[in-house]
């Protein structure tokens, strides 16, 4: 554990209990009626899920930036999140989402399809540029099909469900979603940690990394697996939650020695913290209907991204 990991773990330990109390109704465990029931069945699974998703997205972002050697890279570049979203949209379109298990399963199938397509392409060549372009093509295709599903939506109800779902949220999530996401995200982060040292070697470029014994194809497989599981599971239970994978590694990087391997665990913790705080804020905001988490994070994320670009013009990252 490095310094940054300890810092974010400590902050997470402070923020987590507070997030349980925060909401449209602030809970006083001693006074509120049914406090335990609300905490255990509504708020605790939601907060746990926020931590799981944030951790998966943060770690994926750190690994992705390490792999592409670019601080502007986002796990969405692999096309996994848009394909998972397409899977979920398909289940809503066909009206399968009546069963609570089907939507996440469809989303996971979408993520799996994206991973298979990427692996198929990586199996042929494996160059970083080609691979990124392939990811972008998959993302763009999934986006187009999602848009098509929206325009051809069978009824206004499905349309509204699809649009609401695409803007990710953690509203009304239960232990079921936790049970789906937790093992997959944990496996995903595990795979990304295995990729950590090879990512360090990649700091010196692909040729130097290979000369240091890195098997570039194995590295790519680990990343597709890790990001596929972590991001796919996140989208399956919460919809699209953008910008976490982009912003978090940035906030964390200056607190570390900047080696990609030093970034993965702290980024997981910081991502968990960010999503947990953002989700607590959308619960507390006095709006008629709750602000969607995905929208809230993009509202913070877009200006941040712009600031980053402006800063990068003058400074090496």
């Amino acid at each position: 554990m490095n310094r940054a990991a300890l810092l974010f773990a400590a902050l997470l330990l402070i923020a987590f209990p507070l997030s349980l109390l925060a909401g449209r109704v602030w809970i006083d465990p001693a006074a509120t009626p049914n406090a335990m029931l609300i905490l255990m069945e509504l708020r605790l699974p939601r907060s746990v899920l926020a931590v799981i998703i944030g951790a998966g997205l943060g770690a994926s972002g750190a690994a992705m930036q390490g792999y592409l050697r670019n601080p502007l890279a986002d796990p969405g570049l692999f096309g996994i999140a848009p394909m998972a979203a397409l899977g979920a949209v398909a289940s809503l379109w066909f009206g399968f989402a009546a069963s609570a298990w089907l939507l996440p399963l469809f989303a996971l199938a979408g993520a799996g399809l994206a991973m298979a397509l990427l692996a198929l392409i990586a199996g042929r060549a494996g160059g970083i540029a080609l691979f990124t372009l392939a990811g972008l093509m998959i993302a763009s295709l999934a986006g187009a099909l999602t848009a098509l599903a929206i325009t051809l939506s069978p009824n206004p109800f499905a349309l509204s469900e699809i649009v609401m779902w695409l803007n990710g949220a953690l509203t009304d999530r239960s232990w079921r979603e936790v049970a789906i996401a937790a093992p997959l995200v944990a496996l995903g982060i595990g795979a990304l940690r295995l990729a950590a040292r090879p990512l360090d070697a990649l700091t010196l470029g692909a040729d130097a990394a290979r000369s240091l014994g890195v098997d570039m194809r194995a590295l790519l497989w680990l990343l597709v697996l890790g990001i596929g599981l972590a991001v796919g599971a996140s989208v399956a239970v919460a919809g699209i939650i953008g910008f976490v994978g982009l912003i978090v590694p940035h906030l964390v990087r200056p607190l570390t020695d900047r080696l990609p391997s030093s970034l993965i665990v702290p980024s997981a913790l910081a991502g968990a913290l960010l999503v947990l705080i953002a989700d607590s804020i959308v619960r507390v905001l006095p709006l008629v209907s709750e602000l969607r988490l995905g929208i809230a994070l993009s509202l913070i994320g877009a200006p941040f991204f712009l600031m980053l670009l402006l800063r990068m013009r003058g400074e090496k990252l």
Partner: peptide, 8 residues
């Protein structure tokens, strides 16, 4: 090409 991607 002496590439160094991050400011180590």
């Amino acid at each position: 090409l002496g590439e160094i991607a991050w400011d180590l």
